[in-house]
Structures are given as C-alpha cells and as structure tokens.
C-alpha cells in the first residue's frame, strides 16, 4: 500500500505491506533507529513518538494508519547542534543510563509538557506511567522533566 506522511518535517511516500507496524516502518524503511522496541504489548513505551502532536506507541499502530499524519521521532527533536530543552534537561539531570528507554521518555515528556506546562511531581509520574525505565528508578527522569518545564516556561 502507498502511504504519504511527514516525518520530522520532511515528506515521505512509500509502498509498504499493510501489516507493517509503524515502528518497523520507522526503523527498517526510514532507518530512524532512535525509536526502540522494548516489548510487544504497548507496555514499555520505548517506541513512543508523537503523531500529530500526541504521544503514541508506534509498536501498536500500523504504518498505514499514519498515512497523512505528521510524525516526530527523537531524531527530529534537536535543531542541528542545539538539543531541545527536554534533551538538555535529561543530560543535565542524569535522566538516562543505558539510553534505551530514553527516546520514548523524551517524546512522552513532550506530550506531558504540551498538555500541562507546569506539572506537579505527581502529574509527571502519572504522565510517565506508560513508559518503563529499568535503570534510573525514574528519580532523575522526573527531575529532568521538572527542569525542562521551568526552562520552557522561562
């Protein structure tokens, strides 16, 4: 099937199998390997991207469902050399260790801060409940998002 969509600001058109998942399309067809696959039940959130501005898990969408949509992946967050304030905050606060869940965490943080620019700690933790991290114990991820919120609001 033919699909046309925008990924990180650029238009793409591809002929793909209807059964191909969106994450598979991003990783295998578009070579955007920053989006990771950590499970097969939408449980871990490592594959989180934004689709028309909302965080979604790209492992449980088919690529054809993204036809006509605007997608942002982790690769689209930085502006050239300049990392996005959320990325900067993760670095500043040691919000990542092995880095595998990190792209999903950052993309979820985009969504959390879009809908709630001044979240409380509880609201951040609630917003992250669809994303597993096995390394950090979430402590520094929460701090990263708190700092990113301050940064984005200043």
């Amino acid at each position: 099937m033919q699909i046309s969509l925008t990924i990180n600001g650029k238009s793409h058109s591809n002929d793909i199998e209807p059964r191909m998942s969106l994450v598979h399309y991003l990783r295998e067809v578009m070579d955007l390997t920053g989006t990771h696959v950590g499970c097969d039940t939408s449980g871990c959130g490592a594959c989180t991207i934004t689709l028309d501005g909302n965080a979604v898990k790209s492992c449980t969408l088919l690529a054809v469902q993204a036809d006509g949509c605007e997608i942002m992946t982790i690769e689209g967050m930085a502006n050239g050399e300049q990392m996005h304030p959320i990325q900067e905050a993760f670095k500043e606060n040691h919000g990542l260790q092995c880095g595998f869940c990190t792209p999903g965490m950052v993309m979820t943080a985009v969504d959390i801060l879009k809908s709630n620019p001044n979240p409380t700690e509880e609201e951040i933790r609630h917003g992250l409940e669809g994303n597993f991290c096995r390394c950090t114990g979430y402590h520094n991820i929460v701090k990263s998002i708190q700092q990113a919120a301050e940064q984005l609001n200043s």
Binding site: L32, T33, G34, T35, T73, I74, E75, M77, A78, M83, Q87, F90, K91, E92, H94, L96, G99, F100, T102, P103, V106
Partner: peptide, 13 residues
C-alpha cells in the same frame, strides 16, 4: 555530565 548522553538523546545509539 555524561559524554555518552548526546548520542542516546539524539536517537543515535
């Protein structure tokens, strides 16, 4: 601060 973070945060691990 960690020097490995940039590649992970850019999806370039």
């Amino acid at each position: 601060k960690r020097r490995e973070d940039a590649r992970f945060l850019r999806g370039a691990g």
